[in-house]
Design a protein around this nucleic acid. Structure first.
Length: 387
DNA sequence: GGATTCGGACGATCAACAAA
DNA sequence: TTGTTGATCGTCCGAATCCC
């Protein structure tokens, strides 16, 4: 984990660019000779002896291996790092997803002319007195009244594209991040919304009102096409055998401490269920969820993601899970629509039949969990005030 | 000790916006 | 039409952790 601010070892970013006294550079670049940026300068040089911070050089397009490892790449193919790890065969440019179009941006800061003719931006005052100036013109999660999505601004790439908790080579099945890519208009989300409201009743009102509909994630974590090769795109309520995967809420909360949109999704149901069950152990134990539900692989894949490092991966044995796959072209169809409305939902971008099949399966799971959750509450909370 | 994970800072790009 | 702004997407640093 990254050391949080204030912990030993943390340095300001600008300071981090300064080479430590010894052991520099660490990690992959250590002694590999590829510590030079594209301008031929070493990183320590680039850090700037003058004290003024210099830009961090980055390649236009990292190769897929470096991208996956979040490590420095170079413009050569194969790149130095791939050569070092004997990955020349797979050292190819990563694909960039096209930028979204039609995203509404709200009013800009008004520009005011200086005496010298130059213009300077001045912030637009917001009608909400609770917003300080730093919020003005800034799409924050608190600007819930705007037509901009709740989740805006920079979100750590790992929050947007969660990475695998273990090396792929250690996974008998690919882990799946569970984030709902559907909108509240679907039966699935509607069902979950009601459950979320119900199950959050024991929370404080403040917490409960922070529940946000699923589309607040839809433009980011739940958006098809936005997943790294090693971070499979999600299906609602997907899980791996042996464990239910939680959505990257912790990451999201760290990135947006003021905006905590609880994802109203099947994954949140999993969280709520886990919380409820852990705090209110049922007197009627049920089998583990993972024994009740078949493994679900991410959309666009008929098989688990292939890891070049572990060539032998058995195909999924349960054919039922394949019925939950999305058509191969769902992704491209979605990303080429150019829809400006982020509520354009994932489900609507795929065939209705597929959506219905998927929703039906998902709703079945939701309903099962809903019953469990409610039963648990009824068993344990009878007589207590859950309002 | 090397490999991997992962939070998050930082950079590049470009469409939306505002002013000329 | 042109310059500015800010959202989006990508790179990769570096600490923590894993694993041989």
């Amino acid at each position: 984990m990254a050391a949080p601010h204030g912990q030993q070892g943390w340095r300001p970013i600008a300071e981090r660019r300064q080479p430590p006294a010894a052991g520099w550079p660490p990690d992959d670049n250590n002694g590999s000779g590829n510590n030079d940026d594209d301008n031929g300068r070493s990183s320590s040089e680039a850090a700037g002896a003058s004290g003024s911070r210099t830009k961090r050089a980055q390649v236009k397009n990292a190769c897929v291996n470096c991208q996956r490892a979040c490590k420095k790449c170079d413009s050569g193919r194969p790149c130095q790092r791939c050569v070092k790890y004997n990955l020349q065969d797979t050292c190819v440019d990563s694909k960039r997803k096209p930028r979204k179009k039609g995203v509404k941006r709200g009013p800009y800061k008004k520009r005011k002319k200086n005496d010298d003719g130059s213009s300077v931006a001045i912030p637009i005052l917001q009608s909400d007195p609770g917003l300080d100036e730093s919020d003005a013109g800034d799409s924050d999660a608190d600007d819930s009244g705007s037509d901009t999505p709740l989740v805006q601004g920079h979100v750590a790439s790992h929050a947007r594209f969660p990475r695998l908790p273990l090396p792929l080579s250690h996974h008998p099945h690919p882990p799946v991040i569970s984030v709902a890519p559907e909108t509240p208009t679907t039966g699935l989300t509607a069902a979950f919304n009601s459950l979320a409201t119900t199950s959050s009743s024991s929370m404080s009102n403040a917490s409960a009102t922070r529940f946000a509909p699923a589309q607040h994630y839809a433009g980011h974590v739940g958006q098809p096409g936005g997943y790294r090769a090693h971070a499979p795109a999600p299906l609602p309520f997907a899980h791996t055998p042996g464990t239910i995967r939680l959505p990257p809420i912790a990451s999201f909360d760290q990135a947006h401490p003021r905006a905590r949109p609880m994802p109203t999704s099947a994954s949140s149901l999993a969280i709520l269920t886990d919380v409820a069950l852990s705090s209110h152990p049922s007197p009627h134990p049920t089998p583990p969820l993972t024994q009740q539900l078949p493994p679900v692989y991410p959309p666009y894949q008929a098989h688990p993601p292939h890891d070049p490092r572990s060539p032998q991966r058995p195909p999924p044995e349960d054919s039922e899970q394949l019925s939950l796959q999305l058509p191969d072209d769902a992704r491209s169809r979605h990303t080429t629509t150019g829809e400006s409305d982020l509520s354009t939902n994932y489900a609507s971008s795929v065939d209705n039949d597929d959506t219905h099949d998927r929703d039906a399966a998902m709703e079945s799971n939701i309903q099962r969990l809903s019953r469990r959750l409610r039963d648990t509450h009824l068993d344990q909370d009878s007589g207590s005030d859950v309002n």
